[in-house]
Design a protein around this nucleic acid. Structure first.
Lengths: 110, 110
DNA sequence: TGCGTATTTGCATCTTTGGCCAATTATACG
DNA sequence: CGTATAATTGGCCAAAGATGCAAATACGCA
């Protein structure tokens, strides 16, 4: 595999990594929550999600690893916040896919 | 769980489904290819991806199931094409996440 | 009808994820 | 210091995902 092919492979793998980090209901809810609240600690987010704190912590770690959120420790608490502003437009695209599907289903039923 | 909570749950699950369909290097490459070519058959896409045709067929099925592509059969061949136009803006958001990370790494190294 | 090509589907296998519980680390507070 | 709270990490298991090979389908064509 030559240099250009490697670069292309890396491009798709990096994109996939970011998308994979977003591709889970709990993590999408975390992102939504952080978009609304500006920042939040793990304990608060744990209540919102309703899973074990360890689970939420791992979800946040994935988002962080993908570069979607960043964290800062204050005392015993760790605060997370979004690092990216463009997520709204991203989700509006996702929604347009969803909407398109719903329209299709309606067409099939009628 | 009440009606509103169910709706919220469904919202995140639906979004996650679309994102999950995109969250794979091969499927991202397929999307890129279809964006460039307007439409293509499975056999051509198989060459591009370089996996077994059955694998590529399954990847395409996932994209279709998520509402990202649609397909049409002509003779023995099945042609796939994108159903959504907004993917460019979606990827530019993903890229901004990636770029942000790269900048961070550079900062750490220097 | 029978052959060849394009595509999908049925296993079998291997890897990755998600989740909880328990243990560990880090920090605040008495 | 000892204890309590916040968060992360390790271990484990069940569920989901990826992939190739082989078999089944679906067409086109002679």
């Amino acid at each position: 595999m030559n240099r250009a092919e490697k670069a292309e492979k890396a491009k798709y793998e990096t994109r996939a990594k970011v998308l994979k980090a977003l591709a889970h209901p709990a993590r999408l809810k975390l992102v939504d929550e952080l978009a609304a609240k500006e920042e939040a600690c793990v304990c608060d987010l744990t209540e919102v999600i309703g899973s074990d704190m360890s689970t939420v912590s791992r979800h946040l770690a994935q988002l962080k690893n993908a570069g979607i959120v960043e964290s800062e420790k204050h005392g015993q608490m760790v605060f997370y916040r979004l690092r990216v502003k463009c997520l709204t437009s991203l989700f509006s695209c996702i929604e347009s896919v969803v909407k398109c599907q719903i329209d299709d289903q309606r067409r099939v039923l009628s």
